[in-house]
Amino acid sequence: MKRLLPVAVAAMAAFSLGPFLWSALTSLKPADELFRVPPTWIPRSVSLDNYRDVFAQRPFARYMVNSLFVAGLSTILTLAAGAPAAWALARLRLRWSAAIEKGFLAFALFPPAVLLVPLFVAARDAGVLNSRIGVAFVHAALNLPFAVWSLTSFFRAFPADLEDAARVDGFSRAGVLLRVVFPVSAPALAATAILVFIFSWNEFVIALTFLTRDELRTVPVGVAMLSGVTAYDIPWGQISAAVVVTTLPVVAAVLAFQRSIVQGLGAGAVKG
């Protein structure tokens, strides 16, 4: 068992990294090497032209700031609205809790493509077209069913006696939630936050139609705007470069965030 562990980890890493690595290698190939048959695995001549062109063609730093803002705000909104609801559903013995839970799920069943036109009308009438905050709110609403179900499921596993003990110690319900439940459920909160954040980071249709000013656009829309001179040619190398440049920092940030939230809240729990 012990000896198998490194093999298993290596297999998992190869699975997760493989296709991405192929994109990353593609991003380093000059244009005339992309369609070689048989394909070159390691670029024969490494070129950073694609990286230079990506930033020359589109303001990707700007797009990343926008995406970070939209995804960050929508994650905060989702958790702020979803955690109390999940707590109530898991713990407060609401009479309708099963029905309410299913009601939340019902909202997850409709693809944004069908919602797009009515959402667009609503956003225009509310005057929030070309507003990143507007998009963050829409993403938050779309994410909420998952967040509520996820947190409800984890809160249910939370040992009730710990909570009762805290109540006896004179904590209010909100106090219990903030000081006892959240710290202990930190891994679950972090996992939910990460999934929600990445959903928003990658969402395309809403971001495309709501944000039409270039300085407000998000990363996935920006990638879709990379183009050759004509409509047909796909700037393959540049697209790969854009994906590498925009994804790696996100994964790093997400992990740093997870570590700090788990440690931070975990430390709080020990003290509390």
């Binding site: 990294l17 296709p19 369609f35 990363v219 990638v223 992990l255």
Partner: peptide, 28 residues
């Protein structure tokens, strides 16, 4: 290892789908 495990989820689907089209090509 955890970072690597998340990576596929973090890549924009539409873009990575394009990569897959190239990966599955009969020629290159």
């Amino acid at each position: 290892a955890r970072a690597l495990a998340i990576l596929p989820w973090a890549l924009p689907t539409a873009v990575m789908a394009l990569s897959w089209r190239w990966i599955f090509s009969d020629s290159w």
